[in-house]
């Protein structure tokens, strides 16, 4: 009973504030992560040798290093070069870089799976290579990459908690503050866990709906 009161009166209000920050982090990271993924993947598949190499290097570097290290570099390291960001901005930049690298892998595979005949047909109609990729190939590739991208978005929701390490107080950070003050780690983080579970479930539903909605009629995968 005492616990319920604690949850309602002491824990929930700061957690809701933290949740708002978490949602904002995700909300800003998803579109830019998608865009980054599309650009990197397209560069790898359709770019010239130089661009293709750079895009591949990007993926190798950011898939191969811990996100937390990247966040520290952006937030604590870059100021020594005269570039400094707010904690929130630094976190979003880190998430976008990381999410973009992973997304690009799914999108690259999907780009390669669209039949090249369609590219030929588009070019035969007078489209430039760029127009053909943007209007014909990418829209199909994005649909095929969506299940993979959905997974990455779920991961993103969970690793957004790392923003707390940059003093950006989101859901986990808000929980940590309450837990430390009242010394109720188990209870607090169980509730925080339920919050994440809800977020992930809702996101999963939305993405599932989107996948259905974007399915091309008559096409069997």
């Amino acid at each position: 009973m005492k616990d319920l009161l604690f949850i309602r009166e002491v824990l929930i209000p700061p957690l809701l504030e933290g949740l708002a920050v978490t949602i904002k982090l995700i909300f800003f990271s998803i579109p830019f992560g998608l865009l980054a993924g599309m650009i990197i993947a397209t560069g790898r598949v359709y770019g010239n040798r130089m661009i293709s190499f750079l895009c591949r290097a990007y993926v190798i570097v950011f898939k191969g290093t811990p996100l937390l290290m990247l966040l520290f570099l952006i937030y604590f390291g870059l100021p020594s070069l005269g570039i400094s960001f707010q904690p929130f901005t630094a976190a979003v930049i880190g998430f976008v870089i990381c999410n973009g690298a992973y997304n690009s892998e799914y999108i690259r595979g999907a780009l390669l799976s669209v039949r090249t005949g369609q590219l030929m047909a588009a070019e035969a109609l007078g489209m430039t290579r760029g127009q053909a990729v943007i209007n014909i190939i990418l829209p199909q590739a994005m649909r095929r990459a969506l299940p993979g991208i959905s997974n990455e978005i779920i991961y993103l929701i969970k690793y957004s908690s790392l923003a707390y390490m940059l003093t950006c107080i989101e859901l986990t950070g808000a929980g940590k503050i309450v837990a430390s003050r009242y010394f109720k780690f188990t209870l607090v983080f169980l509730v925080v866990g339920v919050f994440y579970l809800c977020l992930v479930t809702i996101a999963g539903r939305i993405l599932g709906f989107l996948e259905k909605k974007l399915q091309i009629p008559g096409l069997i995968k």
Partner: peptide
């Protein structure tokens, strides 16, 4: 510009799978 003046029809149709018949014709 010149390719617009040379229509091409392929053995495997090569229609754009994500577009309706009308949009296939429309897009270019």
């Amino acid at each position: 510009r010149l390719r617009q003046k040379i229509g091409m029809v392929f053995q495997n149709f090569n229609l754009f799978d994500h577009l309706t018949a009308r949009k296939n014709v429309e897009v270019a």
